[in-house]
Amino acid sequence: MSKNMYRNVRFILLLIKLKLSRMMVFRFSFFGAFFADGTLFLVQLLTFSTIYGHVDSIGGWDRGQMILFVGTFSLINALNMLIYFFGVIGIPDKIKRGDLDQYLTKPINPLLRLTFESVNPGSFLLVVMSVLIIGYGVSVSGIEVSAGLALAYTGLVLLMTLLWYDMEVILRTIPFLVISANGIEQLEGHLIDLNFKVPGVLYNGVLKVLFYFIMPYGVMSTVPTQLLSGVVTAPGLVQALCVVVVFTVFTLWFWRFGLRRYKSASS
């Protein structure tokens, strides 16, 4: 088991090295993701800042909590861009063109390779920017952050990054079963955009069920923000952790299920 893990880690490091070599060819794009997403989150901060110029709280959240929400969303997105986004988004095209053959015939887990073969080091600046936004949110909220709280928050953010990964893989596994899934990616974009503008605490009824259990984008930034600002409830935290576990197990099963239905280029 440990030998297998060691082999996987070595493989991931090799993929990162190869990706870095390729990125040096397009240096102008190196920080593309940082500029693109960086402005998105700054504009969102500006939007909330304008609204808080007229009100003191939104659904019980003050300005500091909303900054933490934007910062946390930005951080999860930054980790997504840094680690797996550019690898996972290529899955539908590889399925469509039969390029997945090259992954299946290699003696390495194809999902592992797809996940780590397109790391984007330029997004690291986005991580730094997100941490600065969170730091600003903490100072505005006046939260005392102990080492334990920082560790718990970091762990929860990593789990939510895993949940984001699960959603990305699930949606990009659907092309194994249908001819074209371009619309699914557009739908994902709209749902992320909606949940980026609306903290999960504001949802009620059908929307809460939808964004907490079925397409759990509403959980991702909300629960870590609640944890950091000390308003998370134990059932809320357990519920979020259960969602991560269920979705991760489902993702791995669904990926294997999809692979069995793959019609390769050579078949």
Partner: peptide, 14 residues
């Protein structure tokens, strides 16, 4: 400039 991708995204957000 050949590569204007990042500019496309930045101006879109603003």
């Amino acid at each position: 400039f050949l590569d204007i991708d990042f500019f496309l995204h930045v101006q879109g957000n603003v």
